[in-house]
């Protein structure tokens, strides 16, 4: 039995001076937990993102987000009723694939009955402090609430692969130089080709292992970075009509990209009638992660 997607919400920066991840994450999470009883049931909160607000390395950003949610009274009732209401919050980082591992962890805890529901929040910050060089990602956050699903439904399998021969293709790091903190993104020119090749290799392997054909998949929700990745994947004839990726202000995201894409179709007939939805992410490492969601 897999876990099902209860709801998904996104949030973009409201004002030019308020571009951080945490405010967006709080807004997205609040919207997710708006439904009566949702806040009381969550047992785990994972924040997944690579580039951290103000370069904060501790505590987990998820703890800071949880604190704000409680302060804003969203979870107060559950805490006052049961002091030991167990919420474990932590951060997960695996480049653009971190979202899939976060979903896999929450799905597992729900399956094993340790929690009733869990919240994953994804997004990246252009740190306000210091300089940045070649930072290509949009600001914003997305939250997804998972709860117990039905038999053979919900998230049914996950697969992650690494291609270490391309480990130097994409490196994001922060260093201190000439009295200033500088965030630098180094991308090799072949990164796009390699990500496309790795993603398609992993996809074919996944379908083979799961004894599925691409015809069995209705929608593919994929990473948005590197630029051109989704359109390159769409060039494969059997994937052409299945790829979902948003344009405009809801594009250009890193860790949260698949959630922004999912959000763009979540309430449409196209999503409701889809039986098998594949999440296909690719990022530094090169790492690919795939999740199959059935409904």
């Amino acid at each position: 039995m897999g876990s099902k997607i209860e709801t998904i919400k996104v949030s973009l920066p409201l004002f030019s001076f308020n571009k951080g991840y945490i405010p967006c994450a709080i807004r997205a999470a609040k919207k997710c937990l708006k439904k009566r009883g949702a806040a009381e049931q969550i047992g785990m909160l994972i924040s997944t993102g690579v580039y951290r607000e103000k370069h904060i390395v501790e505590p987990a950003l998820s703890a800071l987000i949880l604190r704000k949610l409680i302060q804003k009274s969203f979870l107060c009732r559950s805490f006052s009723q049961d002091r030991f209401k167990k919420i474990l919050a932590f951060d997960l980082n695996n480049g653009a694939c971190g979202l899939i591992q976060a979903l896999q962890i929450i799905d597992g805890y729900i399956q094993s009955g340790k929690i009733e529901s869990g919240l994953v929040i994804a997004g990246d910050s252009l740190p306000k402090t210091g300089k940045t060089e070649n930072y290509p990602f949009s600001q914003g956050a997305a939250a997804i609430l998972l709860s117990k699903g039905g038999m053979e439904k919900g998230f049914v399998c996950f697969k992650t692969e690494s291609y270490p021969q391309y480990k130097d293709d994409f490196i994001g790091y922060s260093h201190f130089t000439k009295g200033k903190r500088v965030l630098t993104i180094d991308v090799k020119k072949d990164f796009l080709d390699h990500t496309v090749r790795c993603a398609l290799t992993s996809l074919d392997k996944f379908l083979d292992e799961e004894k599925m054909k691409i015809e069995d998949v209705d929608l593919v929700i994929c990473s948005q970075y590197p630029d051109g990745f989704a359109s390159e994947i769409r060039n494969r004839p059997d994937l052409k009509d299945k790829i979902i990726y948003p344009n405009g202000i809801k594009s250009g995201f890193h860790t949260s990209a698949p959630l922004f894409a999912l959000h763009s179709i979540f309430k449409t007939q196209r999503f409701r009638t889809a039986k098998n939805i594949l999440f296909l992410t690719v990022g530094a490492g090169i790492t690919t992660s795939i999740a199959l969601y059935s409904q």
Binding site: V50, N94, G95, P164, L183, G283, A284, G285
Partner: peptide, 24 residues
Amino acid sequence: YEPSISTIVKQKIGANGALSFDIS
């Protein structure tokens, strides 16, 4: 920030087939 450190560790020790990720 990226790639994840777990990717680097698994490669250095030779556990290439392992599922890996970083938590904080």
